[in-house]
Design a protein around this nucleic acid. Structure first.
Lengths: 315, 315
DNA sequence: TTGTATGCGTTATCAG
DNA sequence: CTGATAACGCATACAA
């Protein structure tokens, strides 16, 4: 590996001068600048980021926390973050937390140990961790007050779900709740309930975990009590559709199902899934941009991106 | 951040001693060991990985190259790598190459600049890059001779695809080829052709790119010439199924479709997709294990994992 | 068995 | 405008 010292020797100057030229910091005569730049080019010099990170106590790596990268929602977010990061000469270190406080804690420690420049987290407990650094944190799709976050409009999304079902003429709704304690899921539920209530449409709430039991036991009798089912995300909707169809329940005639996220696959399931689209990729990109601003000391505010209904054949 | 020096001061010994105890290198009296360990615990000392990486010219980060993390095949691979990595106190840095030689080249440079301990690459051109380091590389699902790699048995997979279709009584097959120059796709095609030939089943080959044209134009007449379609992966199969179904072609009665990968969604598409399952997660885990062995100077051989047919309703 | 000193590759603070 | 030089936090060869 060619180092600053090699370069300096080649040009016949001190490392200090070379460093200044390369970083555009401090003075350097135009002529000097030219000589150094050319030599750097010629020798294909690339600064060692480890040394730089040690010296400045700040690497160009940002930590990214997700519950599980296998969940198809996250790769898109990550791709958004990574695209924006690489453009700014940053890299991302990924951690899967599985909603586990201790795992999360460990990753935060790791981010510290690597002098990470910041953190983007899709797992909110991060805000309860006491070894959280002074480095900037952006919460993604998780809102916690006093913290900077970015999300798609979950309240609106939840409303849209209910609105659409009502428009399609449902009279008895099953509202499946997502993960507890996650603002995004709670707000969706809130939005749906609000609209359902306003329209005096009776509904029942089922927790995510209870759903698993229902689905596994294939308790169709229970599901058939409803003519509309609101799912917390597309993944859950796939499973609901699957059980319904396999038991000969006709969708959307007998029961209408609506998802949330608009994953790429939702157009291929049967019947194709009506859902709420959120700008997943954009969420990632913007999160990174916010982080950069925070690093520059610029004041940033939490962002809320828009969502919209995608009508397909399940409703 | 508490450093070695802080710890040393606390215990009242030199940093060297502390370092030796913590790394289990060199001598240290049992008593000294105890005192240091306790202090480390008490002060919650965590070594700075940046400093360590600079000192040893080797970080505990490994670079992972994938074409695009949004492609649902890769998150599982990555999860496998990451799970195994974290267990061994390693972290992963991810790069999306989009099959672009220059992007790939840039990431390799970045891995160097970060003293990465090794590279796992799902993009084969990595072997043509001249700035490839001396650090170990494991190719994942891409085989290039003279390089260490791990893959699922693509030749067998291709054979299984053809075998199954033939068993289901097809007489005229459309064989869709995957990406050019990728050993995995080429071997699948090879396997299928071999079996098709042996059984004297006529077939036509369509390139991945040509398929796009067919699908977009909705050239059903062309597709209807066949009663069996072999797809290079599940993603392509979804699109084929979609066009077929939307045009009223009955699957599997009129034409049978088989995919490859067994992504999680393949059970939810309509009709549910018959496909070849490969141990994606395991591929990632083993790739990391191989890398570790290589780092320890242990001789490792390329691995080939087994695949199997998953019969569903599309055939 | 422990301590001293050096270097890893940079950046930044000083003099000159 | 440029050059020594001291950090950054750790590991290690060598001295004691």
């Amino acid at each position: 590996m060619v180092t600053l010292k090699d370069l300096a020797k080649e040009v016949g100057v001190s490392v200090a001068t070379v460093s200044r030229v390369l970083n555009n910091s401090g003075y350097a005569s135009p002529e000097m600048r030219k000589r150094v730049m050319q030599a750097a080019e010629r020798m294909n010099y690339k600064p060692n980021e480890v040394a730089r990170a040690l010296n400045t106590s700040r690497s160009n790596i940002i930590g990214v926390l997700v519950p599980d990268i296998s969940n198809p929602y996250f790769p898109k977010v990550i791709r958004g973050i990574e695209d924006e990061a690489i453009k700014n000469n940053y890299r991302i270190l990924i951690g899967n937390t599985d909603h586990d406080f201790d795992k999360e804690s460990k990753y935060l420690e790791i981010f510290n140990q690597n002098n990470c420049a910041g953190i983007i987290s899709a797992t909110w407990t991060v805000t309860r961790q006491d070894n959280l650094t002074t480095r900037p944190v952006v919460l993604l799709d998780r809102v916690v007050k006093e913290h900077i976050s970015i999300e798609a409009d979950n309240l609106k999304g939840g409303k849209l779900q209910a609105h659409h079902l009502i428009q399609q003429g449902v009279h008895h709704v099953l509202l499946i709740k997502g993960l507890e304690d996650y603002s995004s899921f709670e707000n969706r539920t809130l939005g749906s309930r609000e609209v359902l209530g306003e329209n005096q449409v009776p509904y029942e709430i089922l927790s995510h975990t209870a759903l698993n039991g229902t689905l596994e036991s294939g308790d169709i009798a229970f599901l058939e009590k409803f003519d509309g089912i609101i799912c917390p995300n597309d993944l859950v909707a796939y499973r609901v559709l699957n059980v319904l169809i396999n038991h000969g329940v006709s969708v959307p005639d007998q029961v209408k199902v609506i998802g949330y996220d608009n994953l790429d696959f939702s157009q291929y399931v049967y019947p194709s899934l009506t859902t709420i689209e959120q700008p997943i990729y954009q969420l990632g990109r913007n999160a990174f941009k916010m982080l950069m601003k925070m690093n520059q000391g610029i004041e940033v505010e939490s962002e809320v991106l828009d969502v919209k209904l995608i009508k397909r054949n399940s409703t």
